[in-house]
Nucleic acid binder design. Structure first.
Length: 432
RNA sequence: GUGGUUGUAGCUCAAUCGGUUAGAGCGCCGGACUGUGGCUCCUGAGGUUGCGGGUUCAAGUCCCGUCAGCCACCCCA
């Protein structure tokens, strides 16, 4: 082995690609059930598309370089800026709400870990131009129906649901000041990964009072809509801030998806651009990274594309999803079988094999034959290894009778069939 | 980017205290089997022990470096 694939980049051997294809097909099928249309954009973009909004520090995690024309460019690390530009360019001509999805390959220059490579594919679904909570429920339901379509249920996957407006109201109510909010968000986000004492120290260092820090922890500990609403009832503007969350939860329940939903305010999703609902899909055992994350970003399209449209969406990567499917035994069995394998007894039979094989392929069958004179046993061995359903054997005796032998490789029967009825007969047998 | 840990055949693994030609199963090639596959048996190919250096009479084994995988940070668009 002289050269290997670059770290964090994958090679897809046939079995791997079969799984990837299964994932893509399921993604497309479910997205289209929701009326989403597929789009795509360039995998290579101007660097400033990503730095303009997020600043230069993001460059450390981008695959970027100077192209031969002297342009600063980057492999796309996310789809949203491209989407924002595309939507903005034709915003006036697009019927709202816009339902679009894409399956981009995304790149990030980072030390890889399990479930986190330097390249992955991600289902992106976005709903643009709809401000109401039914839109939020719709996008979450889509994410859930995608995992359901893979055979995953509430015992495998849950959605943790939060709302920035709820968190905002509760944190202010707990005595956190506006300038301290980013630090409070970070503390809530890290509550499960860091020690309570260390977090409290950080908050206090940021100027949060001891009392307010306790309040932050109390907010982070809330679980379930009832507990959250009870807390909201005690803070200024709380009930109004919680109205959307309630409607989202109710809508998901009406869809029969209540078993998947956990209201949990520790889902913060970065700190950047989410403005309302935020959610994350994760495996129920909590051993893997998040399968999917998303939320509402009502201000982002204006910031990126100059068009003020409310929007929300999610991204679901193929890496963690594939791990979960493997773990749960939900990877479909190898379907690489062919329909018919043709075997020639003697060299003189080969032209007849070629002729029938071509007829079969023209008719849409998956057909293969040995590329050289071989013993029949050996040819059938190959047919078996290929998972062929049927074998056709053509020999001098059969040809003398104007027949070919059709053999059922799964069962054990075989029968002579007139040559001119072979195609017809195989069609019946493959279809059954 | 930081710290820890692990690298032996295509895959899963073995190799005693540092000891002679690095083995096994699966898979792959071929044969037993020139008009019939799966099973079985036999045979063969396949290794710079990740790479480089060091210690030693002797290194898969010990030491250093490096690369890669994994784990925890960082980050998560």
């Amino acid at each position: 082995m002289q050269t290997k694939a670059l770290p964090g980049f994958r090679e897809f051997y046939p079995a791997d690609l079969a799984l990837r294809t299964h994932i893509f097909r399921t993604w497309r099928t479910v997205a289209m059930r929701y009326g989403f249309e597929e789009y795509d954009g360039p995998p290579l973009e101007p660097l400033e598309l990503y730095t303009a909004k997020s600043g230069d520090e993001i460059v450390g995690q981008l695959y970027n370089f100077t192209d031969k024309g002297g342009r600063e460019v980057a492999l796309r690390p996310e789809m949203t800026p491209t989407l924002a530009r595309m939507v903005a360019a034709r915003a006036n001509g697009l019927k709202k709400p816009i339902r679009w999805f894409s399956i981009p390959q995304l790149f990030r220059y980072e030390r890889q870990q399990r479930g986190r490579l330097r390249e992955h594919f991600q289902l992106n679904c976005d709903l643009i131009g709809e401000p109401g909570p039914l839109g939020d429920a719709e996008i979450i339901a889509l994410a859930l129906d995608v995992v359901r379509a893979f055979g995953l249920g509430p015992s495998d996957v849950r959605v943790r649901l939060s709302d920035r407006r709820v968190l905002h109201a509760l944190l202010l109510g707990a005595g956190v000041t506006e300038p301290q909010l980013p630090d409070a968000y970070e503390a809530v986000d890290k509550i499960e990964r860091m020690e309570r004492g260390a977090l409290a120290q950080r908050l206090i260092a940021a100027g949060v009072s001891t009392e307010a820090a306790e309040g932050v922890f109390a907010v982070a500990a809330l679980r379930g809509l009832a507990a959250v609403e009870a807390a909201l009832a005690k803070v200024p503007g709380g009930p109004a801030a919680g109205a959307s969350l309630r409607r989202v939860v109710d809508a998901l329940a009406a869809m029969g998806l209540a078993d998947f939903v956990e209201v949990d305010l520790t889902i913060v999703r970065g700190l950047a651009y989410y403005t309302g609902t935020v959610f994350e899909l994760f495996d129920a055992g909590r051993t893997l990274r998040a399968i999917c994350g998303g939320g509402r970003y009502d201000d982002l399209l204006e910031a990126l594309g100059g068009v003020a449209l409310p929007a929300l969406g999610f991204g679901m990567g193929d890496v963690v999803l594939a791990e979960l499917l493997r773990e749960r035994g939900l990877v479909p069995a190898d379907t690489s079988s062919i329909d018919v394998f043709l075997a020639a007894i003697t060299e003189a039979d080969l032209p007849h094999v070629l002729a029938l094989a071509h007829e079969l392929r023209d008719a849409g069958f998956r057909a293969e034959y040995a590329l050289g004179a071989q013993a029949v046993g050996k040819q059938l061995k190959l047919a078996d290894a290929r998972n062929a359903r049927f074998a056709v054997v053509i020999g001098p005796d059969d040809r003398a009778r104007g027949e070919v032998v059709i053999k059922d490789l799964a069962g054990k029967g075989q029968a002579g069939v007139p040559r001119d009825r072979a195609l017809e007969r195989l069609s019946e047998m493959v279809r059954n």
